[in-house]
Amino acid sequence: MNIKHVMFVGTMIVTMSFAGTAWGKSAISPIPMPKWSIVDLDNSSESEDDELLGALNQSSEEELADKLYQGQSLRSIAQNSGGNYDRVIAIQIKQLQEQLDERLANGSISSEQHALQSMEVAELIIESANRAYI
């Protein structure tokens, strides 16, 4: 796998973890349709962020971002802080699959694209979570 693909997937996963579905809709879209907002009126992503931070045993998004910026992988963050790596993977797979399902329901991807991308979700998430980006 080339480095551009790895960097793209890693950035996409981290961004989706922080921004919920606001960024996730355009992260995979061939024609970006960003939904930008200073205030996220949809509080459902807040509980997912808290769930991810809890699984990583991190107190804040800033603490997590600092560790990622220092070149730690999600696996090493979870292991070093007493987090639950398997739960981190499950949360991120669920989030990315929900976004794919939403894009299929909205008609922005075909059922064939949905099926192909769904088959790759777990592999991409696991590979990205195990890689440190420095």
Rank of each mutant, 00 (worst) to 15 (best):
Y85R: 09
A27M: 15
A129F: 02
I28R: 04
N2A: 12
V88R: 02
I77L: 01
Q58W: 02
S118M: 07
E62F: 13
D86C: 10
L74H: 00
Q95R: 14
S111L: 06
I89N: 05
Y69H: 10
L56R: 03
V14N: 05
D49V: 13
A129S: 13
G10F: 01
I125E: 01
W23A: 14
E112W: 01
M16H: 03
S17W: 02
T15P: 01
E112C: 00
M1C: 07
E46R: 12
P30G: 10
L124V: 04
Q99G: 14
N84H: 12
T11R: 03
L52S: 05
E46V: 14
Y69S: 11
N2I: 11
I77K: 00
L100H: 08
L64N: 02
E102L: 13
L52E: 00
T11W: 05
Y133A: 00
E102W: 11
H5S: 10
N2D: 14
A105G: 04
S37R: 13
E51T: 12
S47I: 14
Q70D: 13
G24M: 09
L96E: 07
N57V: 05
I89R: 04
S110A: 05
M16E: 05
Q79Y: 06
T15A: 11
G54N: 12
G82N: 03
S47G: 02
S47D: 07
E123H: 14
K25F: 14
S26M: 15
S47L: 09
I3T: 13
M12I: 02
G107E: 05
F8Y: 09
L41H: 15
S26V: 12
D101Y: 05
N2S: 14
G10E: 00
G24H: 02
D86A: 15
E62W: 12
Y85H: 09
Q95K: 15
S29A: 15
Y85T: 07
S60H: 08
W23K: 07
E48F: 11
A122Y: 09
E127W: 08
W36H: 14
D42L: 08
A78T: 01
M12R: 03
W23D: 08
E46I: 10
N130S: 09
W36E: 11
V39H: 10
S73Q: 01
Q58D: 03
E46L: 10
G71R: 03
I109R: 04
